[in-house]
Design a protein around this nucleic acid. Structure first.
Lengths: 165, 165
DNA sequence: TACATATATCTCGATTACCAAGATATTAGT
DNA sequence: ACTAATATCTTGGTAATCGAGATATATGTA
């Protein structure tokens, strides 16, 4: 075969990783801009996004997912609750737990802010054939999985420096 | 033709946008973890990433790109400079300007932290045929462009609420 | 040339997210 | 009952960020 294992990455593969990285940078920036235009702090909006994907979760789970200290999550939930983005609900099975329930019905601003991107993405999707879109969608899932793995290994890892110098 | 313009998105297209959003959430989280494991604040690492992509830019450009106030950028550059990630260089053509020059030679920690993800991404890329990878890489470019457009329209837009309450 | 205006960065004071550690409430195990 | 484990909240301190003004340089106009 023409390609061996553990070769240096090809030029095409490097081009691909570069594009992934660019996409990542823009994604982070976009997220920050959306958060600020909603009057939310980054982690507040990120948490809304996480809740959107995962559905109701406990405060502790959100702490693990975001990497924030539990005290920070308490304050974060306070803010989101005050603005009507979520509500607290105690778990009847374990009354120590606080379940965070997203409240999207009354909060169309979030979807409204996201809508233009969504529309553009649908448009982009429509420019591909069914087969191509399937390939891309599956790829996105795999890429997500790779990143999630990396998050796990980073959060498990030495954790090295703590921030305040 | 079988598909009309302005239809509702198909199930496949919705699936696609959902995956994009998941990827975005994970990307933001990953970025935060990397930043913290490098002992950097999010915007500091984000700025390094921007500099990595764009090369040397002025403080003002970084302010626009990150959405941070100019005063915040001053402090941010101070931190990065102190840690040797960048250096300041005055523009001989316009001595008001401060050009931020990335210093990667001595700072392998950054690439080291990024390497595992890079390796996994190369691996993922290698699982595709040349044609498929080309399709995906081109897609990534288009998706980046879409997000960049959205950032522009958000930063141009009302800007609505400012954060402190 | 002199002067006003625009632009780029920096400085300063105030606000507030965040962390770390301890406090409180509930559950689980013996 | 009693101890330990778990989940969230509270408190105090630190520092990133903002906003507004200060400083330095550049540009335009008479």
């Amino acid at each position: 075969m023409s390609s061996e294992r553990n070769d240096q990455p090809t030029a095409e593969q490097e081009q691909f990783t570069l594009r992934m990285r660019s996409l990542g940078t823009r994604t982070v920036l976009y997220q920050q801009y959306v958060a600020s235009s909603l009057g939310l702090y980054n982690n507040d909006y990120l948490s809304i996004d996480i809740l959107h994907e995962k559905g109701p979760i406990t405060a502790g789970e959100l702490s693990k997912l975001t990497g924030l200290a539990t005290g920070s999550v308490t304050a974060l939930i306070d803010r989101l609750e005050k603005n009507g983005f979520v509500r607290r609900q105690t778990d009847p099975k374990d009354r120590r737990k606080v379940i965070i329930v997203p409240q999207y019905e009354d909060k169309e601003e979030v979807s409204e802010t996201y809508d233009p991107l969504h529309a553009k993405m649908v448009e982009l999707a429509a420019s591909y054939t069914a087969e191509e879109l399937k390939l891309i969608t599956e790829f996105l899932g795999k890429a997500s999985d790779v990143i999630e793995e990396q998050i796990y290994s980073l959060s498990a890892a030495p954790k090295s420096k703590s921030l305040p110098k």
